[in-house]
Design a protein around this nucleic acid. Structure first.
Lengths: 101, 101
DNA sequence: ACAATAAGTCAGATTTTTATGACTACTACC
DNA sequence: GGTAGTAGTCATAAAAATCTGACTTATTGT
């Protein structure tokens, strides 16, 4: 079938948009741009955020390859979330959106 | 008062992202880029869409200034939704997102 | 040993979004 | 007058996203 590509074609941007628009996501993204993040710190600094949602949001961003979850084996032994290369590639898009809003 | 890096201010991109990520929004946007749209046509061509959601989506996109709602007084007397200038400015951003997904 | 910090998970409650079906109002056609 | 098309609204229902508070596991501090 050449013409019938598919009946349920979805915008490629759809999934990405949905991922980025979720609660706390832009916030997390912005903070990630500024530097590595840690779970309990985020919980304290993001006013109104709750564990569950942050946990889910971080996991989704990680799964999407925008954040890297890194276990730092040094002294306090903790976990850091870093912006990945793919995540960095998204920065200019965010900037354009901001400039537009 | 300890380092209360209060993040009360929201990302400017947040609202715009949320607006664009809603159900049927990317779909509507894509169709709007292709040409003027009409309500009942959309209902028929967008598989699975329902009046209410389409109505709300169109209204939100219009309120955000991305679509213009135009009453065509000519013969069949109908309403058309056109991509506005602001909406057109968003096209390259969508393209970048698509290229990234 | 006991308490605190870090990074979560889990079940259930609440809120927000999206979907359904019935109904309205206006125009046009036969 | 009856039927169909266009463009919706409204109340309600179902589904999805988000929040709450209790609980967990492992590490570190006193």
């Amino acid at each position: 079938m050449t013409t019938t590509t598919n009946t349920e074609k979805e915008c490629p941007a759809q999934a990405l948009l949905k991922l980025l628009a979720g609660k706390w996501k832009p916030e997390l993204f912005k903070l990630a741009v500024a530097g590595p993040m840690r779970f309990n710190s985020l919980l304290r600094q993001i006013n109104g955020a709750n564990k569950q949602s942050l946990s889910v949001a971080l996991k989704e961003l990680e799964t999407a390859g925008l954040l890297d979850k890194i276990t730092v084996s040094e002294k306090p032994l903790h976990i850091e979330y870093h912006l990945s290369e793919k995540g960095k590639a998204l920065v200019p898009i965010f900037q354009q959106l901001e400039g537009m809003a």
